[in-house]
Amino acid sequence: MIDESNEIEPLGSGNPPEDADRIPTELASSEDEAPAKPADPAVFEAEMNPHLDSLYRNAMRLTGNSNDAEDLVQDTYLRAYRFFHQYQPGTNAKAWLFRIMNTVFLNDYRKKSRQGDQLSYDELEDFYLYNKLSEEALSKEQSYNMANPEDVIVERLGIEEIEDAIRKLPGEFRETVALATMEDLSYQEISDVLHIPIGTVRSRLSRGRKLLQRALWQVLGKTDPDALGNGDD
C-alpha cells in the first residue's frame, strides 16, 4: 500500500505538474527555466560523473530493482544537466544530485516502488547488534572473542547482507540511514535532500539505525520473530 501520509512532500507548493518532464520545483522557479543554451557536457561530466556510483546505489535503494534504478539515474542525470546552471560550484554536487533524484523519484517512481517491509517499532533497543552478538557469545561455546565483536561483523557482513537489510527498512528510514551511513551526507544536506527538518533527520536516524541492526541480525540468518514482523498478523 502506498503511504500517502508520508512526511516527504513533493517539493514546492501546490500539486506537482502532470507532465513527465517537469522541473524539480526547488531547482527552478517559474521564471527560471532551463537555459536556451545547454551546459558544456564536459564541465557537467567532470563535476557530476564522480557521483554516478553513489547515484546508482541510491536509486537501487529507492526503487529496489536495477531496471528502475537505471531509469531513475538517467532521468536524474539528464534533469541535472538541464538545470546545471542552477548548481553552485563549490557546494556538494552529490547532495545536489540526490535532491534532484529524490524529487524525480517522488514524482514519477514512488508509486511503483517497494515500500519496505513492515517492521515493528516496538522496543527498539540501543546497541541491538552488539547485545545480540554478546548474547550469542555467552550462550554458545565462544567461537569468537567478544573483546572485538566488530571483527565478527566485518567478517560476516557482505554487501548482499547489507543491501538486503537496508531494503527491509521502510522508505523514510531507508533513505535517511543510507544517506548518513553510506553516502557521507551531513545532517543538513540530508535535510535539504529529503526536505525534512533536521530534527526529523535525527529521529529517523535514531530509529532507522536500530531497525537496520535488527534487519542485519535477521539477514545474518538469525531468527528474532519479535523484532521483524511480516505485516501479515
Binding site: 566485518v154 547489507i162 551511513t181
Partner: peptide, 24 residues
C-alpha cells in the same frame, strides 16, 4: 567502538556496488 566499526564496515562494503558500465 562497535557502532563506529559497523558504520565504517557498511560504508566500505557498499562502495563496491557501482553503476553498470552500460549505464555510464
Amino acid at each position: 567502538n562497535f557502532e563506529q566499526s559497523l558504520v565504517i564496515t557498511i560504508k566500505t562494503k557498499v562502495k563496491n556496488l557501482c553503476a553498470p558500465p552500460e549505464l555510464k
